[in-house]
Simulated assay, not measured.
Amino acid sequence: MKINQQNIFEDRKQAFKICEQTIKQHSKSFYAAFSQLPKKKAQSIYAIYTFCRVADDIVDEEKDAQKLQQLFQELELFEAGSVPNHPMWLALEAVFSEFPMDIRPFYDMLIGQRMDLNFQQPKTQQELLDYAYYVAGSVGLMLLPVLSPTPTKIITPAKKLGEAMQLTNILRDIGEDYRLGRIYLPKEDMLRYQITTTHLEKQIISDNFINLWEALAKKAEKLYNESLEMIPFIANDARHALLSALMIYKELLPEIRRNHYNIYEKKHVVSTRRKIELIHALKRNM
């Protein structure tokens, strides 16, 4: 199919609409943040998010190694210029035609999903951070060409933001992940804080558990703060949206603290009211 470069986003508007519905359904936080972008940039984020969501669902919902391999093969076809006839790929073709996208982080993200299919509990915090890069830091790199005119200058802080968000996910989902047979807490940290699988099984929220949780939360907060180094290199029309996403996601950590670290009985979310407060506060301070 020959691309009409001038009108490709308009030609693919139905594909982008499907991607927008995906992010609206699965990540209200990201949608609240990135829907503030100019239309083409917002649509591009929706398409990238959809790729990540499809991969995530193959692993978490379907646990299907064959489907994940098929997604790898579709990505290879896409890279070679043979675009699969699917809304996600058609939308991504428009994104790649508009922005100087790098295909490598898309492959890295799928490598991270393969790590989940063949899950092994990380031994150290460094192993956890390596994993966090593949499943989330890679996403930061996917987004950079849409958000920044000079993406290669801010690769490290973009990785750090993705890693911070993934650590936040892990700290929010300890109970849910345990029920799925996964423990992302590093073995050396569990040993240091004398936390065993029995504590997780019995849902014991002890002082030691809180101290372990806080050690990782402080690591995440440090990564969030270090990721702010990228902000001067983010396009003016994207800066508020990116900061909104960062602040909303980071807010999950104090939200869990306010709920006394009860990560077993509920999945913590940032309320719509609090999201609006954070977004408005950012607008006042910019």
Rank of each mutant, 00 (worst) to 15 (best):
M190G: 02
N262W: 08
H86Y: 02
T198Y: 09
K40R: 14
V54Q: 10
Y131P: 05
P254Y: 03
P232F: 09
T152S: 14
N285C: 11
Y131R: 07
S82M: 02
M115C: 10
A15M: 09
K219R: 15
L68R: 03
M230A: 07
I204R: 09
Q66A: 03
M88K: 00
D207M: 12
E214F: 11
T168V: 13
K160I: 01
E127N: 06
F209E: 01
R104K: 14
L147N: 01
A281Y: 11
L161V: 11
N208G: 13
R182L: 10
Q6D: 15
E61R: 08
H280C: 12
S138Y: 09
Q66F: 13
K24Y: 05
E229K: 13
I205Q: 07
E74C: 09
P254D: 13
Q69K: 14
P100W: 02
Y49T: 02
A281R: 13
D56G: 06
L246F: 06
P105Y: 10
D57Q: 14
I18H: 05
Q69H: 10
S244V: 09
L171H: 01
K219I: 12
E93W: 02
A220V: 08
F34E: 05
Y184Q: 06
Y134A: 07
D130Y: 11
D102I: 15
N262H: 01
Y193Q: 07
L90H: 00
N225W: 03
Q69G: 02
I45Q: 04
V54H: 06
T152Q: 15
E127S: 03
P254A: 13
S227A: 15
I103C: 04
T197L: 14
Y264V: 06
K202Y: 11
K17D: 04
L191T: 15
F78Q: 05
I154T: 09
R53H: 11
N262P: 11
G112F: 07
L191Y: 13
G112M: 00
Q126T: 15
M101N: 07
E188Y: 02
A220I: 09
Y131C: 08
I234Q: 01
D102K: 15
Q36K: 07
S44K: 00
I23T: 03
Y134E: 01
T22Q: 06
F209G: 03
K123W: 04
T22F: 03
L212R: 01
W213M: 06
I256C: 04
M190I: 04
K218I: 13
Q25R: 15
N236C: 05
I45L: 12
L90F: 00
A164H: 01
N7W: 05
F34P: 06
K218N: 13
S148H: 01
R179A: 06
I183K: 04
P122L: 03
S148L: 03
E255Y: 08
D60K: 00
K40S: 12
E93C: 00
A94T: 04
A235Q: 06
T196K: 10
K153H: 12
I3S: 06
E76D: 06
K40C: 09
K267Y: 09
Q69F: 11
L117K: 10
I58V: 13
E221F: 14
L252K: 08
A238E: 05
N225S: 14
R258L: 12
R192K: 12
A42C: 14
P157T: 10
D108E: 13
N225R: 14
Q6K: 08
